[in-house]
């Protein structure tokens, strides 16, 4: 152990002590699963739906006119853009 790390140890020990005294583990609960698939019913995002299927598709992939050059989605909601350093 280096001299430097010895000097830092008290801060770390205090941090662990505080962290442990504050910790209360979450429970596995049915409510948790309910919430998860409750959202899946409404749409998507929070929960996964099946990706594998044995069906074909009748949707046509229009090869020739395929490339849509401009994104037009909710990106309009994202404004600003001055890069800040990480």
């Amino acid at each position: 152990m280096s001299v430097k790390s010895l000097a830092k140890a008290p801060l770390l020990a205090a941090a662990m002590t505080v962290a442990l005294s504050a910790a209360a583990m979450q429970d596995v609960s049915a409510a948790d699963m309910e919430k998860c698939y409750g959202i899946a019913k409404a749409g998507h995002n929070d929960c996964k739906t099946e990706t594998s299927s044995c069906a074909g598709t009748a949707k046509m992939d229009h090869e020739a006119s395929a490339f849509v050059a401009v994104p037009v989605g909710t990106c309009a909601k994202i404004a600003g853009g001055t890069l800040k350093p990480m």
Binding site: H44, N45, G56, D61, V70, P71, G73
Partner: peptide, 28 residues
């Protein structure tokens, strides 16, 4: 070609729903 392309695009849309929303369905 449709089955492969369209269905795999749908799989990506399932995995990347936020990206899809951000750029819109056609662009995605």
């Amino acid at each position: 070609r449709n089955n492969t392309t369209v269905l795999l695009c749908e799989v990506l849309g399932t995995t990347y729903p936020v990206v899809k929303k951000l750029v819109g369905e056609a662009f995605f």
